[in-house]
């Protein structure tokens, strides 16, 4: 109940954690991962209030069936930030987002096994035919993941000049913005439709449960049961513990 009341007075980052005694905030990503995450949460006994599913709602913060557990729904890239700064205690974020921000204040104790895809480098079909990645010293890449991309190529001795885009990456090579892109690939159909070829996988991606470091240490009694419960759900899904459906 407390959580519902406090949704009117929004928490600021400089507000002491004591302002939400015992309450736990879970940050969920909009889009792709959310559809797969909700059934998982349901198995763990967490159901958002009905408003959460209402596309017309202007609410950003939701209560759940659990007293003291509130949910926020934010952009996938923002989940890691909310959790790193302690604005949310727990979150669900793709390993791509976690690697891009590389926050030291986040633990990622659980691979939820959902939202699976890969982060890949792609270039135009005809370019790929005559290309030798071993000879690269500098590449220009359009991506949502400039940090991760730069790090990845720097480790190989290649300087990656990244142009940050928020979407429609596939347009970059065709319109001459950059010859190459780094983007999430699940089936590869979008790449193909745009005449691009996947030439290298930077990382395999899946969604993780993430936890704020300070909260993990100072409020473990409130957080650990949720981590354990989700771990049990994942284990059950893998057939380690049989669960009649």
């Amino acid at each position: 109940m407390e959580q519902r009341q406090s949704s009117t007075g929004e928490q600021r980052s400089d507000l002491p954690a004591a302002g939400r005694p015992g309450g736990v905030t879970l940050a969920l990503p909009k889009g792709r991962i959310l559809d797969e995450a909700l059934p998982l949460l349901k198995k763990a006994g967490i159901a958002p209030e009905p408003d959460f599913h209402d596309p017309a709602t202007r609410k950003l913060r939701f209560a759940s069936n659990i007293d003291g557990l509130s949910l926020i729904r934010v952009r996938a890239f923002d989940v890691a930030t909310f959790v790193a700064f302690g604005a949310a205690d727990l979150g669900i974020a793709g390993s791509d987002v976690i690697a891009e921000f590389d926050y030291r204040e986040i633990y990622a104790p659980l691979d939820l096994g959902i939202g699976r895809c890969r982060l890949s480098l792609a270039e135009p079909q005809e370019m790929a035919e005559g290309d030798d990645p071993a000879g690269w010293s500098h590449v220009r890449i359009a991506t949502k993941y400039p940090n991760l991309t730069r790090r990845h190529f720097a480790a190989r001795g290649v300087q990656a000049e990244c142009i940050r885009l928020s979407g429609a990456m596939e347009l970059a090579p065709t319109l001459g913005l950059t010859p190459r892109i780094v983007d999430l690939v699940s089936t590869g159909a979008t790449l193909k439709a745009n005449g691009l070829k996947e030439v290298e996988v930077l990382m395999d991606v899946s969604a993780r449960l993430i936890v704020n470091r300070a909260a993990f240490k100072t409020r473990s009694a409130a957080l650990l049961p949720w981590i354990d419960r989700l771990r049990a759900v994942i284990a059950a899904g893998k057939g380690v513990v049989g669960e009649p459906d």
Binding site: S13, P16, A17, A18, F85, G86, E105, N212, A214, A215, K217, T218, R219
Partner: peptide, 11 residues
């Protein structure tokens, strides 16, 4: 060791 306080979010 790291010192935290329940009143603050960081260390």
């Amino acid at each position: 060791f790291t010192v935290f306080s329940h009143r603050a979010r960081g260390e």
